[in-house]
Design a protein around this nucleic acid. Sequence first.
DNA 1: GGGCTAATTAGATGCTCATCGATACAAGGA
DNA 2: TCCTTGTATCGATGAGCATCTAATTAGCCC
Lengths: 121, 121
Amino acid sequence: MSKQTPLPVIAEECCAPLAREPISKDDAAELARILKAVADPVRLRLLSLIAARDEETCVCDLLPEFDLSQPTISHHLKTLREAGLIGSERRGTWVYSWVIPQALDRLSALFATSKEDTGVR
Amino acid sequence: MSKQTPLPVIAEECCAPLAREPISKDDAAELARILKAVADPVRLRLLSLIAARDEETCVCDLLPEFDLSQPTISHHLKTLREAGLIGSERRGTWVYSWVIPQALDRLSALFATSKEDTGVR
DNA sequence: GGGCTAATTAGATGCTCATCGATACAAGGA
DNA sequence: TCCTTGTATCGATGAGCATCTAATTAGCCC
């Protein structure tokens, strides 16, 4: 496909840790969309498989890990991409994917509860 | 209600950071269940409202924050409780809720990508 | 170009879930 | 004991989504 990486993409600067202050309605909606992307066993495994490698991962290497049709995997990857959690690029016949560490780190910070992490007083 | 806190509860010791090694099928399923609980705008706001306070939060104080029926809020709180993210207890007429910091910290650790946080060499 | 493989898109289906109104339960006070 | 207020459960409904098969697009090689 042509616009695999340049998709919508959210997960930009949002947000302060949940425990710091009540999150806004808008932030909650945006975060929920990102979290929905990871709230699925298949996508969690996909994300982990991709993240656990140092280099990019060929989609063709992901397929045999699942008892699912290829279109289904493609659909899940698209969901992860639209959530801004992974990037991907076609090179020749194959498509390669990689995680976007900043996106994961943002989620990590979101759930942090310790004073230092949340930036509380 | 009688068994508000002692509900199922998952989110125990699970799991290693996604980026450390490919997550197992079982872990993915368990994590997805927890993440589904936070992958909703209303529950995210509920969680944040409860977490942002130092003391327990009365459910009666949460209701006016939403344009939703009382049963709906009650249902969302139950979902958060069953995911092990909050605890709650009835005291007299009112029910009070609090976050379980360990559960949030586990999610935080799950998404961490930096070497130190993920425990990578 | 023709054919092959990898991946995406389209359309259909069945299940999960967010929400509601109505009802039941819990607990305190008159 | 009865009424009132706060919360939970029930049953129904409509929207969203995970999955499939079939068809289409992208790019390589002969």
